[in-house]
Amino acid sequence: MGSYIVKRILVSVPLLLIISFLTFVLINLSPLDPAEVVLQAQGVPEITEELLEQTKEELGLDKPFILRYFDWFISSLQLDFGESYINGKPVWSLIGPAFLNTLKLTLISSIAIIFMSILLGVTCALKEGQVIDKSIRGFSFVLTAMPSYWLATIMIWYVSVKLDLLPTSGMVSYSSYILPVIVITISYAGIYFRNIRSSMLNNLNEDYVLYGRASGLPEKKITMHILRNSLQVSISIFGMAIPIILGSTVVIENVFAWPGLGSLSVKAILGRDFPIIQAYVLILAAAFVLFNTISDIINAFMNPKLRNDL
């Protein structure tokens, strides 16, 4: 197990390096001249050749590409991502708190997703083929076809405006979490509960269940055994879901005006604020790799067969 963990972590390090390089290359592929973007953002009325040269020097854009990459990489490690082109603030002071807000939303939603997936998955598996199973599955089918932002807007309109129960947007109190978490849970639990359901159903056909029944074990105890064996799936779902949600809360955050990475990045894209886009991609990719590594390690811990995969 120890050697697996070491190997798994060693695999992620070069991946992170490649990702950081790709991020840098991507931004430098832009057809726009960053110096021009900065000057436009600062509202300079007339952009002259001299001014462009001067800004390039200030931004260090006159250095060769590889050197710039190393400078950027080393300062990124120290969480120094440069300054926003638009308002001149350090990128980390904008992106750090935003990342934390997104992370909070993601973690709480993941817990809700796991809870709902297990509840629905187990219910459906135990009542397989009955009305309740069919209706839950049918309903989830329609729910997963709904655009999450549409659902979110309808909920804001109904719950926050019509009934006036919850705040419409922003992150003002704990009640602000309720609507975004519900919307995210609906769009993901509808997918993941199927995995739990099928895992339960597979376990139902195992020999140990037959043996338990044959030796007269009460049905409740058998269910507990099945549940424990199916739970492994839910842990790997948890590992899978966190990084995916972290990267795809963009739309939900914008609808609810959640002060997270999603809102920040869309604003940065519309304003062509490259340092923020760069830092956003790098941080999320790093978080993605980190969570994937952790979930792989947990999976290998639960299932020794996976340890030989590397």
Partner: peptide, 22 residues
């Protein structure tokens, strides 16, 4: 492929749009 898939797809799409413009 592994490297491509280690990027969260949504973030990658946003990055590309960020570079090329809306």
């Amino acid at each position: 492929c592994d490297t491509m898939l280690s990027f969260p797809g949504y973030v990658m799409a946003l990055a590309v749009i960020g570079i090329l413009g809306v």
